[in-house]
Design a protein around this nucleic acid. Structure first.
Lengths: 204, 204
DNA sequence: GATGTAACTAACACTAATGTCAATAGAGCG
DNA sequence: CGCTCTATTGACATTAGTGTTAGTTACATC
């Protein structure tokens, strides 16, 4: 019997990086940062860890690329949500739902947890534009471009983002502790948002 | 010249565990979970890593003990905050400040991040009593023990806790992105709380 | 002061993760 | 086909963290 020689697959650099990042993300979300090692990811993809080093330079390079790609995805999700809100008429619940969904998919909660524990806050930078875009779109909806209004809306976005991050991180166990429904968090935040708008309009 | 023999220090088991946990916590908060290794903690304390294994059984035992002690501290801080609120007359800002402080000191944000990434949600269990105690104290203040009121207050506590966790985790970078003050988060949450109370009273 | 308990150390072995390097082979191109 | 480029491999070295074991010493008790 002849020796079966596994035919080696040759990917383009972009393909290889993309596959690796998809796999690494799945590992991060299911098993935590310690489970995204060169060997584990390489085994999942059917390649050697040396090849991953070839594509990412080092283990740290892979992690950094993963952070970058996840943050980019979060920003993109937020941007599209903003774009959709800009066209539709936006009830508060829709706005809140859009933001919460953006944080929920892709594991933004665990992403943020990982980044904070690592201390690499610089990776969060792309989020800056996204959240400020959020302030912008709300301001447009209210039609009040005054600076005082913008500051107030900024704190509203801060409040929504904090809640969304918190929900993405520990929403599930916390809601269980308090006997609250799955969508309790976004219901609460959406229910509070009108007061923000009202106070904002009154201030103008 | 004679060989300097370092006099070996003998601690009680409680002393040793306490010192180790204090050191391990500092390491977790400053350098992340990967920096709390047996050797690193042992070096900080001037002992060998074998001795830490003697006291905690294993590296995982040390980590588990650290989670337990930090969660216990958080619960204790929340309980004392609740006790103080029970006696004083509690303006919303004081309530919110008490909860936010409880999450801020001791690094509850990074603690939660660590627990979630590890997947050991069982370690959060002691928090259950604390948050439910929070619901209780607010209900007492409002003097309305109806079930409908309790559910509404539960969602209020959920909302406060989510915000406090979010603030503890990524409050600083997020506030920077939005040009918000250091105490913007608690100001916002405190400012929203009256609407909760009002709607709760109206519902009774 | 003698003795026993156990906190503590030193030196070892084991494993897993990372990184290096020469060699191999897949794919485009003349 | 023959050639080149580089994605990919396999084997190796290195390091760090963990765990084990036999022995040492501090301290309490008699």
């Amino acid at each position: 019997m002849s020796i079966e020689r596994v035919r080696r697959r040759r990917r383009t650099p972009d393909e290889a990086r993309l596959e690796a990042l998809v796999c690494a993300r799945a590992r991060l979300l299911s098993g935590g940062p310690d489970s995204v090692t060169l060997k584990a990811v390489a085994d999942d993809l059917g390649m050697t860890h040396a090849n991953l080093i070839h594509h990412f330079g080092s283990a740290e390079g892979l992690q950094s690329a993963l952070m970058g790609s996840m943050v980019a995805d979060l920003s993109r999700d937020l941007e599209t949500a903003i774009a959709r809100l800009r066209t539709d008429e936006g009830a508060p619940l829709e706005l809140v739902t859009a933001v919460f969904d953006a944080f929920a998919v892709g594991g933004a909660g665990k992403l943020a947890a990982w980044i904070v524990l690592k201390g690499d806050l610089s990776h969060l930078e792309p989020v800056r534009d996204a959240v400020n875009g959020l302030v912008q779109v709300i301001q447009e909806k209210l039609g009040d471009p005054s600076d005082a209004s913008r500051d107030r809306l900024s704190s509203a976005v801060l409040f929504i983002a904090l809640s969304a991050f918190g929900e993405a991180l520990i929403g599930t166990p916390l809601r269980n502790m308090l006997d609250q429904d799955e969508d309790a968090s976004r219901q609460v935040v959406a229910g509070l948002l009108p007061y923000f708008v009202a106070r904002s309009e009154r201030a103008s």
